[in-house]
């Protein structure tokens, strides 16, 4: 197994842990955190391919990771604001109970 493959295996396992978390938990914040983990795993792939890829002089992987971190920050802020807004209406953070579009 090459080092690149080891990196990719680690990141795919992290992705799957995030996936299992997002699927199995019904607490909205935990689901969001699972999605964040999946995003991080994708970022790890960008960096791994930049480091061991064919042309490391092109900094595309690093740039993509930077943009993706910025967007992830925006996603987390809006997502958690939504959680708070939903909680105010439903008095619950469980996903099953957030089943109405009208407050």
């Amino acid at each position: 197994m090459t080092t690149l493959q080891l990196c990719l295996v680690i990141s795919s396992l992290l992705f799957c842990i995030g996936l299992v978390g997002a699927l199995s938990r019904s607490h909205t914040i935990l689901v969001l955190l699972g999605i964040e983990l999946m995003l991080n795993a994708a970022n790890m792939n960008f960096i791994a391919f930049w480091r061991f890829g064919a042309s490391p002089t092109a900094a595309t992987g690093v740039l993509f990771a930077i943009f993706s971190i910025a967007v992830a920050a925006a996603e987390a802020a809006v997502g958690l604001a939504l959680v708070i807004a939903v909680y105010r209406h439903q008095k619950s953070v469980r996903l099953e109970e957030a089943n109405r579009l009208k407050g």
Binding site: I29, A70, I84, Y87
Partner: peptide
């Protein structure tokens, strides 16, 4: 992996900012 800038940006954004938003959200709900 040698991506120093991304590593510190990750700490700054995730450990500094996203974590705070998450913890505040947990406490507010």
């Amino acid at each position: 992996a040698g991506a120093e800038f991304v590593a510190f940006a990750q700490v700054l954004v995730y450990v500094g900012a996203v974590s705070m938003v998450v913890l505040f959200a947990v406490l507010l709900t």
